[in-house]
């Protein structure tokens, strides 16, 4: 009985979850500039910054989108100019793999510790 309830929980959950997959991107420039770090006022995003650099950057991103570049191409273009530092979300690479993986490993490790200290019956 317990199990059935649990399955029902999970089932109703995933059903609605999948129903919602159609993501759409509207405000591309905002989205991209939020993920870029301003080089003038470091610590702010290009989106938030009012510096000349940031304002021009927003115009440039707009231009690039009109040229038909996608988000990734724009990031790559800018990384090429200013280095990996400019993006707030580091891509998964040799340098950053640990960044993404360590928290998950710790989570799994924690889970194992808990399972070992808990008895089912």
């Amino acid at each position: 009985m317990k199990k059935i309830k649990l399955i029902l929980y999970i089932f109703s959950f995933t059903l609605f979850f999948l129903n919602n997959l159609n993501a759409a991107n509207s405000q591309q420039v905002d989205k991209i500039s939020k993920n870029l770090r301003c080089l003038i006022c470091q610590g702010q995003s290009v989106y938030d910054s009012q510096s000349d650099f940031a304002l021009s950057m927003k115009i440039l991103i707009n231009k690039k989108i009109n040229e038909g570049k996608n988000e990734k191409e724009i990031y790559d273009f800018l990384k090429n100019k200013y280095g990996e530092w400019i993006v707030y979300e580091p891509e998964i690479s040799q340098n950053t793999i640990l960044l993404w993986v360590i928290p998950l490993i710790l989570f799994i490790f924690g889970g194992i510790l808990i399972v070992r200290k808990v008895s089912i019956k």
């Binding site: 280095g83 990996e84 979300e89």
Partner: peptide, 30 residues
């Protein structure tokens, strides 16, 4: 887990720069 995400996100750039000299930013999306 939340602590480890925040901690690693905050200090990772320092470690990376010391270990191999690359500079990265870690921001809200991470």
């Amino acid at each position: 887990f939340f602590l480890s995400v925040v901690l690693i996100g905050t200090v990772y750039p320092i470690f990376l720069e010391v270990i191999n000299g690359s500079k990265i930013s870690i921001g809200p999306p991470f």
